[in-house]
Computed example of a mutant assay.
Amino acid sequence: MNIKILSRNSGLYSTARLVEAAKKRKHNVEVIDPLKCDLIIEKKKPSVYYKGRYLSETDAIVPRIGASITYYGTAVVRQFEMMGCFTTTESQALVRSRDKLRSLQILSRARLGLPKTVFTNYSRDVAEIIDHVGGAPLIIKLLEGTQGLGVVLAETKNAAESVIEAFNGLQARVIVQEFIKEAGGADIRAFIIDGQVVGAMKRQGKEGEFRSNLHRGGTAEVIQLTDDEENAAIKAAKAMGLGVAGVDMLQSARGPLILEVNSSPGLEGIEKATGKDIAKSVIRYIERGV
């Protein structure tokens, strides 16, 4: 098969591992920078032009689209879909996953456990917002934040009011969520491929840090999910329409709570924590799909 990996950097761990796994299974694989693709739209013959040639002989794509290029990256994925290519992440699912508010609404509709969340249109009733999520401490998240950036823990009501008012003043859209104390600064990342959990890890934030992101110095170890956690992760990926997903959950007194469903989950943390060849599982998913 001819597989194209849509990534801006062929040296990234996830991209390099996917290339390696595809070559091991005797596929032709190439890394394509989505921002350098020209999309040619015409009746019955949509095409992608890249560095002086048409990418017409493409069987499947693996989108590794960063949040900063979601708009154009999604357009490229959509173009390949119009050409009849299989994709590990569909364009509409990619768009849904990048909208934090829409994602939470979809997960809520699927009756999945979530931290209590409030979103308002720059409301002046800050005290009411805080009360809606059970008071301080609470979490304030920028809607456009990724990898733990734009996430603030407000430990007191005064601090929460100050931060929310500051974001409102900057016209930065935020969601306010309850703080799950019993999670202890840790979360779970379940890696889903084609409706199955292929690996799971528990990420623990470094001392004094409530964010567990590995990019922020957190550590990871393999974990065996409970039935409830596994079912929640699979159901969340399905609700978002994602064939490949990283589902982030908190362990709480009322069961697993979904934080986020990531449409371009990194492979480095999960492969090193679990010792599993996740990249190979992605390529095998493509083989079944094509």
Rank of each mutant, 00 (worst) to 15 (best):
R109N: 10
V174T: 15
E128V: 09
Y54P: 03
I258N: 06
E271C: 06
S281L: 13
K141D: 07
V282Q: 03
N231V: 00
T219F: 00
G195P: 11
D38G: 08
L153W: 02
C37K: 09
Q251F: 01
D38V: 12
E178R: 09
S47T: 13
M240S: 05
A75G: 05
N2Y: 02
E161G: 08
L242K: 10
Y72M: 09
G266V: 03
R288I: 12
A67G: 01
I193V: 15
S91G: 10
K51M: 10
I32R: 11
K4W: 00
R211T: 06
L112Q: 02
R98W: 00
N262K: 03
F80W: 05
I130P: 11
K141R: 14
P256E: 05
K24Q: 14
T87N: 07
V133N: 11
E268K: 15
K51C: 03
I192E: 06
C85E: 02
K157S: 12
I188D: 08
N121S: 11
R216V: 00
K24D: 13
N262V: 04
K26W: 02
I283D: 10
L35E: 15
L35W: 00
F179A: 12
S162D: 13
D125C: 03
Q79H: 02
P63R: 01
M83T: 09
D33Q: 06
Q224K: 15
S7W: 01
G275S: 10
A186E: 15
G275P: 12
I61K: 06
E144A: 14
I106Y: 01
R284I: 08
G269K: 03
L225F: 05
P115W: 02
L107T: 09
G134C: 08
R98P: 00
I283N: 10
K141A: 04
V163H: 10
A159F: 01
V152T: 14
L35D: 14
T58R: 07
G134K: 07
Y54G: 01
A136G: 08
I3C: 06
D59G: 15
E165G: 07
E178I: 08
A190W: 04
N213Q: 08
F119K: 11
L138P: 13
E155C: 05
R203V: 05
D194I: 04
S264D: 04
A172P: 00
I283P: 10
A200S: 11
G208C: 07
I258C: 05
L138E: 12
K206G: 02
D99P: 05
I41G: 00
G205K: 04
K36Q: 14
G266D: 04
P34M: 02
R111T: 03
L170Y: 13
I278S: 10
I223R: 13
D227R: 12
L242A: 09
